[in-house]
């Protein structure tokens, strides 16, 4: 763990924390709007777990950055170009089916990545991953079941789930594109090279989509630019205007 570049480690932690922060915020937008009460509660609880994980990842990120900022500062006062989340997670929710499809695509990724991070050479990363992986395992069980239920459901629900998969599939590839941050993390034993997770991921989602009678689009095209912050979609800025409104309107506000 000795020779990890601080800036690289920070970037890795921001990627982990921004993923859960942005998806947590998106999922929380359903609160009070889901089709039935049980689903509303489930979505709110999922969002809560994700925000909790964000506190752990960003909490450690600011420890590493060590420049006096808090996790709240970086969650609520950074602008779009400083975020390092996957593009998939900042896209608008769409309908309930699309929201659960996105949840499944991300849960499947986390359920493979987090157990690997539990073996990280960095103790803090390993401990956060241990905590988060239990929640991710619970999430993927539910989102996979829902994808199967709706995919192999009525004609209408099947049609919507296939449309959701077609819409979101071009955003899956970004999860597995490695860059210099990933190379540094892999070399230091902090995190696996994301490219190495692809086979396991494809096997997991392939099994669920087969059961859901859904067809994975025959294309490798991948939108990129979220994990490295180079090209976010226009949607992230709109999301931030909601998420950061209070902290921007009332600087320094505390509970």
């Amino acid at each position: 763990m000795a020779n990890v570049d601080k800036e690289m480690l920070t970037q890795f932690l921001l990627r982990m924390g921004d993923n859960t922060l942005i998806l947590g915020h998106r999922v929380s937008e359903w609160c009070g709007h889901a089709p039935v009460l049980e689903e509303d509660i489930a979505l709110a609880n999922t969002a809560l777990d994700l925000i909790g994980q964000t506190q752990l990842w960003l909490g450690y990120a600011v420890e590493v950055m060590d420049d006096g900022k808090t996790a709240d500062d970086i969650a609520f006062l950074r602008d779009a170009w400083d975020f390092r989340n996957l593009l998939l997670l900042e896209l608008p929710n769409g309908d309930f089916g699309q929201t659960l499809m996105r949840q499944f695509l991300f849960d499947a990724y986390q359920s493979i990545l987090l157990p690997r991070l539990m073996k990280s050479s960095n103790q803090a990363v390993a401990e956060i991953a241990e905590k988060a992986s239990k929640e991710a395992a619970y999430h993927v069980e539910r989102s996979a079941e829902t994808v199967v239920g709706l995919g192999d459901g009525t004609e209408e629900s099947h049609k919507r789930m296939q449309a959701a998969l077609d819409r979101l599939w071009p955003y899956v590839g970004e999860m597995f594109v490695s860059d210099e941050v990933d190379a540094a993390m892999a070399a230091a034993g902090v995190a696996p090279d994301p490219a190495s997770l692809r086979a396991e991921y494809d096997a997991l989602i392939g099994k669920v989509f087969a059961e859901a009678t859904l067809t994975i689009p025959d294309s490798d095209f991948a939108h990129k630019g979220g994990r490295n912050g180079k090209t976010h979609t226009e949607h992230l800025g709109h999301l931030l205007t909601q998420m950061q409104w209070l902290q921007r309107a009332y600087p320094g506000a505390t509970w």
């Binding site: 049980e38 689903e39 489930a42 609880n45 999922t46 809560l48 619970y138 539910r142």
Partner: peptide, 13 residues
């Protein structure tokens, strides 16, 4: 089972 989640993070319905 009605739902995998409930009134607090630690419960299901």
């Amino acid at each position: 089972k009605m739902s995998q989640f409930g009134s607090t993070p630690c419960k299901a319905q």
